[in-house]
Design a protein around this nucleic acid. Structure first.
Lengths: 343, 343
DNA sequence: CTGAAAGCGCTTACAG
DNA sequence: CTGAAAGCGCTTACAG
């Protein structure tokens, strides 16, 4: 009986409630009660159980507990591009908020492909998560329905499709995009451009369409540059191409701060443009870098704190009678120096 | 019997293997086998089971499975400051790598306090994780020992303490810090400074000490600025203070890219210094922003891909006979323009 | 290849 | 307040 691959010496077993009960001289049920808040148990036996548990290094097995109780305490977060400033911040807030509410967070890194989202949702089902929050990607209707059918709460962030039963959270992209257009026009900018990526998520599409529409309503056409990933490099490329034209824009709304930083670097570092005098730039997300001295970007802030708080609350309490599950959050404007103040 | 807080209509239950067996006309065991790779089962009954499972929307309950098998398939990642560029990237790689290896990742957002790390490790035990990876914070010896005792693999990243049984992964901070000093001196910089935060993690301390030591060995003293969080703002502040002195440095090693970006902004945007002619800057981590046009920072790359791959492998296979579990990774230098090339 | 049976570690009515 | 008992949904020898 050799264990060639076993680096650890100990037999490695957990103490069970059974053993704790024996050592404490109480019943198995008593042990359970000692670890169930609000259960009826005397101070005396609780103390005995706790002593025995400490001595044995006992930890309640939440897998077994989840089997009996309705809830497992697991919440799944389906997300792609975790390394991205906006998503990592949201993830940070969400995971902390859920933990404070006594939940444990499972992260399913889905990547871009829809297939992966489906796999993630299946994991969600396998581990009997109480809820799953989809931050990226669009789940197939069928698998999403399975989650719903099995009693999971399903929260979708910034998705276009609304399955019945699903809770939809979104940011008010339309309002922000329109505000951006207004800001530019009021400050006297006239040659408007928009920079976005080739990725067609509902959020990005909405920002583009509403910016173009709002400008159009004021008689101004918008040059749309669209390409690449939703990343700094695309912004740099887009900004460079736009500024190399014979009639370069004097204002650009970048649909994301990452893109905006690229645009700013193209304008300032590559073309020597003064910001905001010669060109104005507005972004979206309010990532940390937007506040860095080299950028100082005027942008719209993702209300990550609100979103996290609201998500946790709705997962814990459910939807109140008559209350709509879905909700739209405002993205407040953050004024910095990349847009001229007025005329 | 009113359910005032219940937004969902369905009774919300999962199909069990029992029901699948009944519908398929086979035994309960057969259903189990159909979902166990390598189990002995005929093609015929497998087909029947799969059809019934699909019809009922059956998903194996991994909680129950984990109760029987030795493994739960859960890996815990204990981490603080998820929103930080370096950690979010590491998290991204680790979670993807584990998923590809068939594991599921639980993220325990620990924050800075040691207490939280302890709570996180307890969760790890409650959910019977197969392994836990500590990316931030230092676990109390006692609870770490509990994890080890219960058969968990415990991987510590860049920690100083080495419990027996623990697997320690670290980056070669000493070598990088010494390289930074050499680079500066060889290029002719003479007034060296170091910028670090007030946070005393083993990595940051090692980078500081070895940089100072290497410079000292060449007869050069290092001005050490230490303050605040490990963040951009601290770098900005440190850079500003250093450059305002009567004898400002002409080269600074910032112990982290976030700090380095702050130093660069202080130098270039606040003091109008030309980089690298008037001042050289080196960072550590190679975060995305280091490659942005506004920074173009020479730095050392965190080998996140290697770390992730190695972590997954060691969790899956264990430590080979005679092989040391611990390991040090090189952090390769990434040449950009923030340091002069030679004299 | 297949089924009946024991058992993983817990919770929760049910009686007392 | 307390214990004996049933049961959650699975896996895995054990016989056939």
């Amino acid at each position: 009986m050799e264990h060639p691959k076993e680096g650890l010496a100990r037999p490695a077993t957990f103490a069970s409630a059974q053993e704790v009960a024996r050592l404490a001289g109480v019943s198995r049920s008593a042990v359970s009660r000692a670890f169930t808040p609000g259960a009826s148990i005397s101070e005396d036996t609780r103390a005995k159980v706790e002593a025995a548990a400490a001595a044995l290094g006992y930890h309640v097995n939440h897998l077994a507990r989840g089997l009996m109780r309705q809830k497992t305490g697991i919440v799944c977060l389906v997300v792609a591009d975790i390394h991205t400033p906006y998503l990592s911040r949201l993830l940070d807030h969400l995971s902390r908020a859920f933990q404070e509410a006594g939940k444990v967070v499972m992260v399913l890194n889905a990547g871009r492909a829809a297939r992966n989202v489906e796999d993630a949702l299946r994991q969600t089902l396998n581990y009997r998560a109480d809820a799953t929050i989809v931050l990226s990607g669009t789940p197939y209707r069928s698998i999403a329905q399975s989650c719903l059918d099995s009693g999971q709460r399903l929260v979708l962030l910034n998705r276009a499709d609304q399955l019945p039963g699903t809770i939809n959270l979104a940011v008010d992209n339309a309002r922000a995009a329109r505000t951006a257009a207004t800001l530019f026009l009021r400050a006297g900018y006239r040659r408007l451009a928009l920079v976005t990526s080739a990725v067609g998520t509902p959020s990005l599409t909405a920002r583009r369409d509403h910016f173009v529409a709002a400008a159009g309503e004021n008689g101004v056409a918008v040059e749309v540059w669209q390409g690449g990933a939703t990343a700094y490099e695309s912004g740099l490329e887009g900004g460079t191409e736009l500024l190399a034209r014979s009639e370069p824009p004097d204002a650009v709304f970048a649909v994301t701060d990452l893109l905006a930083c690229g645009v700013l670097d193209a304008a300032r570092r590559r073309f020597g443009r003064r910001v905001p005098e010669e060109i104005g730039v507005i972004g979206f997300d309010d990532i940390e870098q937007a506040g860095w001295v080299s950028y100082d970007l005027t942008t719209f802030a993702q209300p990550v704190e609100d979103i996290a708080g609201w998500t946790v609350r709705i997962v814990a309490d459910g939807v109140e009678e008559g209350e709509e599950g879905s909700r739209v959050f405002e993205a407040p404007l953050v004024w910095r120096s990349s847009v001229a103040r007025r005329g």
